[in-house]
Amino acid sequence: MLSTIRQLPLSSAVKSHAHDFHQIVITLCGSSTFEIEGLGGRVNAFSGCLVPANHEHYYSGQGYNRQLIFDIPDDAPALTGEHRELIALFDAPRFFALDGALRHYLAFVESELDHGFYGQALEQQPDRVAATLLGALKARLATPLPASRRQLDLAPIDRFITARLAEPLKVADLARLACLSEAHFSARFRTQTGLSPWQYVRQKRLSAARELVAQSRLALADIAVQTGFANQSALSHAFRRRYGCSPRALRNQLSTPAPGAAASGAASSHATLDGWR
């Protein structure tokens, strides 16, 4: 999926939500307030924050304000291929201020938006702009963490996640199990598993949802609730991206014997399910 860039003011009413894509939010004028899983505060002009996907955040605008917002899916060109190392910036919420060079780059971005770069030939321009900005932020925000050869014990983390699939889970909760700071835990976790903590949790949720789809007759809306998705639509969207088909299509596939299959429906279903493991 491609990234998008937009400008808008924030209402003075405090709102909250979470979404399955990452965000860069920069205050262009006025000020705003952002709190991302307990971290944050007032964000003045030419400052901003990185909002990791699936992180509940509260936000509001202060008086007249204008925000520049980048919406970046984890499979967008800005975070994949030659830019794949940039996704580590979203391992935890971050706040930043723009220096002189980045303010000049921001002026360029605003000019591009004013002239419109969303023509068919330039549909990936928002990702190019986002990748350049993220690369500059990476150089400024990078803080080397102390190296450690000790591996994280994933067993208690897996048990904690499995027991709370239906509940909101925070990276801070998992970091506490490992007795590490959130940033240190996220870096160690990615090095060990190749995934950020929220990607790992999402895989656990989807795996559990797939088992329920295949082995129960629960309504898809109930499965979504039991595995921590906001609703059936959110489950179906994530499920299709990971497995290439919707939960309903998988259930139909497993319940319909293939032509020439053995009479035993149970054997057929188990054989088909094994192919998804």
Rank of each mutant, 00 (worst) to 15 (best):
L10V: 03
S12K: 06
V14G: 00
K15F: 09
K15P: 08
S16Q: 13
S16Y: 12
H22K: 03
S31P: 06
S32W: 01
S32R: 00
T33D: 10
T33I: 03
I36G: 02
L39P: 01
G40E: 09
G41W: 08
G41P: 05
V43Q: 04
A45T: 00
S47K: 12
P52V: 01
H55F: 13
H57E: 03
Y58T: 07
Y58C: 10
S60D: 09
R66M: 10
Q67E: 14
L68S: 07
I69S: 08
I69G: 06
F70T: 04
P73S: 02
A76Y: 06
R84Q: 13
I87Q: 14
A92H: 11
P93L: 06
A97Q: 12
G100D: 14
G100K: 10
L102Q: 15
L102M: 15
H104S: 14
E110S: 06
E110R: 14
E112M: 13
E112S: 14
L113G: 05
H115E: 15
F117T: 01
L122V: 08
D127R: 03
V129Y: 08
L133K: 07
L134C: 10
L134A: 11
A136R: 13
A139Y: 06
A139C: 11
R140T: 08
T143W: 02
P144H: 04
A147L: 13
Q151A: 15
D153M: 04
P156M: 09
P156L: 11
R159S: 13
A163T: 04
L165E: 12
A166D: 13
L174T: 03
R176G: 10
S181G: 15
A183W: 01
F185R: 00
A187V: 12
G194I: 09
S207P: 05
A208W: 03
A209S: 10
A214E: 01
Q215W: 14
I223H: 00
S233K: 09
S236F: 02
H237R: 07
H237G: 05
F239S: 01
R240N: 13
Y243E: 10
C245W: 05
N252K: 08
L254T: 00
P257S: 08
P257D: 11
P257V: 10
P259R: 05
A263M: 08
G265S: 13
S269F: 12
S269Y: 06
T272E: 07
L273N: 05
R277A: 14
R277L: 14
